[in-house]
C-alpha cells in the first residue's frame, strides 16, 4: 500500500480525529470548518459485534448502522486534511482504533455539563498514545469552568492542552486544530531530543 503523496495528483492526506460523548457537538465542529457539508458515512455492523439491540427482542433485526461524521479541508502545500468524528455511542468504541490509525492527533470535545461523557475518549487516546487536546465546547461563549478545574475533573496530566472552543465558530475550530498539530509537534520534537 502506497504512502506519501499520491502519484496522480501529488496531494498528501492527513487526518485528525474528533471524539467526545454522544451529542457533544462533533458534527457541528466538523461542519464549522469543512469545505464540504459534513458527510455521514455509515458502516453496517451485525448484532454480533454491536452487542444487544433491545429494540428488537425477537431477533428480527440482524444489522444496525453506525454513522460517523466526515469533513474535508484543502490546505496549501498540497495537503488535504480529513476530519473524522467518532461515533459517540459507547458500543461503537471498537471503531475508534481504525479511525485513530495514522491520525496526527485528536480533539476530545467536552461539554462541561456532562463531563463524564468524554472519559472513554480520553482513556482511549491515552492508552493508544495518540496525542490529543481537550476542547471545552463553550456554547454562547460561556466559560463554565476554569481550565484547572476541567483538568482535575478529567484527571488528565499537565501536558494535555485544554482549549476553549465554540464548535459553531470557524476560527475557534481552526485554533483547536492548530492546537492539536502543535501538541503533536512538541511531542515529536521532545522525543527526537530525548533519543
Amino acid at each position: 500500500m502506497g504512502s506519501g503523496p499520491s502519484e496522480r495528483t501529488g496531494l498528501t492526506p492527513v487526518k485528525i480525529v474528533v471524539a467526545g460523548g454522544f451529542g457533544v457537538g462533533k458534527t457541528t465542529f466538523v461542519g464549522a470548518i469543512s469545505e464540504i457539508e459534513p458527510l455521514r458515512s455509515e458502516a453496517i455492523i451485525t448484532d454480533a459485534s454491536a452487542g444487544i439491540d433491545e429494540l428488537y427482542p425477537d431477533g428480527t433485526k440482524t444489522e444496525t448502522t453506525v454513522a460517523m461524521d466526515f469533513g474535508r479541508i484543502s490546505l496549501k502545500h498540497r495537503l488535504v486534511l480529513y476530519l473524522f468524528g467518532t461515533p459517540g455511542q459507547d458500543r461503537f468504541h471498537f471503531m475508534w482504533d481504525e479511525l485513530a490509525r495514522g491520525a496526527i492527533g485528536a480533539v476530545v470535545l467536552v461539554d462541561t455539563r456532562r463531563i463524564d461523557a468524554c472519559f472513554a475518549a480520553i482513556d482511549f487516546f491515552e492508552k493508544r498514545g495518540t496525542p490529543f487536546v481537550v476542547a471545552v465546547n463553550t456554547f454562547h461563549g460561556r466559560r463554565i469552568h476554569e481550565p484547572e478545574l476541567v483538568r482535575e475533573a478529567l484527571r488528565i496530566g499537565p501536558e494535555v492542552p485544554i482549549v476553549y472552543c465554540d464548535a459553531r465558530v470557524r476560527v475557534d475550530v481552526q485554533r483547536t486544530l492548530m492546537a492539536v498539530v502543535e501538541h503533536t509537534l512538541e511531542r515529536v520534537m521532545s522525543e527526537a531530543a530525548a533519543s
Partner: peptide
C-alpha cells in the same frame, strides 16, 4: 490508494514528520 503518511513517516524519521506537521 494513498494511506495517510503520518504513521510511516513518524516511524522513519522524526525530522520528516516534524516537517510534515
Amino acid at each position: 490508494i494513498t494511506e495517510p503518511p503520518t504513521e510511516t513517516v513518524s516511524d522513519s524519521s522524526d525530522n520528516d514528520y516534524a516537517e510534515l506537521l
